[in-house]
Design a protein around this nucleic acid. Structure first.
Lengths: 206, 206
DNA sequence: TGCGCTACCCGTAAAATTACGGGTGCAATA
DNA sequence: TATTGCACCCGTAATTTTACGGGTAGCGCA
């Protein structure tokens, strides 16, 4: 019988233990490893070649999105199931674009989680209803350009346009244009709202 | 032998399972209940009179701080140990003010968590070094007045001073004063930074 | 009773932001 | 090759925010 080989990637030891405890009750599940950050997860995935990687999005060293991309590149047979505590449309969209096969929230019931693992292991995709609803009611922002992300990050730190111009070595007028483009793209009426949206949707590092 | 009666309050089933699995390996620990939100935790604490409540801060229905306050009021013999994934100085300070006996991060190692439980069960306080460091490097904001909290919340939503004046039924000039007081109190140079600080420090609901 | 705190009110002026208009050069790509 | 998108540049004007100054009234607490 072919058991599903599972790698757990989460920085919280209690979460890894909980997942391991849950999966140990399923005869067709085999937890082959646990990784406490993204970097280690990538190495462990190469070493252990699991069928499914259960991936937290917020981890130190390397976040779940980058780790997902790296794992999909290095061992394409490993499916990635994103397991997150705070889901944002943009985060999920990025994870799926990076090659994740599914996404589910940590608040999900055990049965749903087990079903999700089986589904992605079978090569199908699985996105929980809760997350689907989120993607519908709050569609992801069309992605920001590199410059826009830099400027948005600076906005959240309270830099004025002049500050940003000096920091980036461009004119104030250009910064104003970047800011206006950001406001339009993320649907903010002003820079304070832009900061609110950026942090709530995790468009920048918190 | 008096085992330590423990109630687990966390909205994530996997975390509750992980904690239960960990504590089941300790002969002096007895997990007597699990609650998936703050409201239920308060009821369960009354019903089960545990020695220690392991309390997540971010939960639906009622957050961990309110739940801590309610539990300390209704059954003072129950010690509360805060277990959080994203610690902020303000959140921890509020939890301790609400009567929590300790605080530790979810990224803590199992041994530290077990030690923390034993310590608060024995009537001592326990704040992990990581959280102590956070409180030192980033001391909590002197608490905002009710009006200031309202205004700060509106700032994060991108309302202009005029909008807020209409919403609260006061003059723009008064709103300006509230905003200035907020900026000074939380150490922000302008409203965009105020929004950034408010959301990063969880001074308002996310 | 006096003190401090909060919630309000008012005016003026400088600074910053936002909203319009107009451009060029460059790189990728269809 | 033509188009598109991005990063830049410039000007003007309205609006908003921020920084000063001043004030009153109510409330709890020492």
């Amino acid at each position: 019988m072919n058991r599903i080989r599972i790698l757990l990637a989460d920085d919280h030891a209690v979460v890894r233990m909980g997942l391991a405890a849950l999966f140990s009750t399923k005869k067709d599940f085999d937890v082959v490893g646990q990784s406490k950050n993204g970097e280690i997860a990538v190495r462990d995935a190469e070493r252990l070649s699991p069928d499914v990687v259960v991936m937290d999005l917020m981890m130190p060293k390397m976040d779940g999105i980058e780790a997902t991309r790296a794992i999909r590149a290095k061992c394409p047979s490993a499916k990635v199931l994103v397991l997150t505590s705070y889901a944002t449309s943009d985060g999920i969209a990025k994870a799926l674009a990076a090659g994740a096969a599914g996404a589910i929230m940590k608040s999900a019931e055990n049965t749903e989680l087990v079903a999700a693992i089986r589904k992605v292991a079978a090569g199908q995709t699985f996105v929980s209803d809760e997350i689907k609803g989120l993607m519908d009611t709050d569609p992801p922002v069309s992605s920001l350009t590199g410059r826009q992300s830099e400027v948005l990050q600076s906005l959240t730190l309270g830099l004025t346009n002049k500050d940003i111009a000096v920091q980036l070595g461009i004119s104030i007028r250009s910064v104003e244009e970047h800011v206006n483009n950001i406001l339009e793209k993320i649907g903010a009426a002003n820079r304070a709202e832009a900061v609110g949206i950026a942090l709530r949707k995790r468009l920048v590092k918190i």
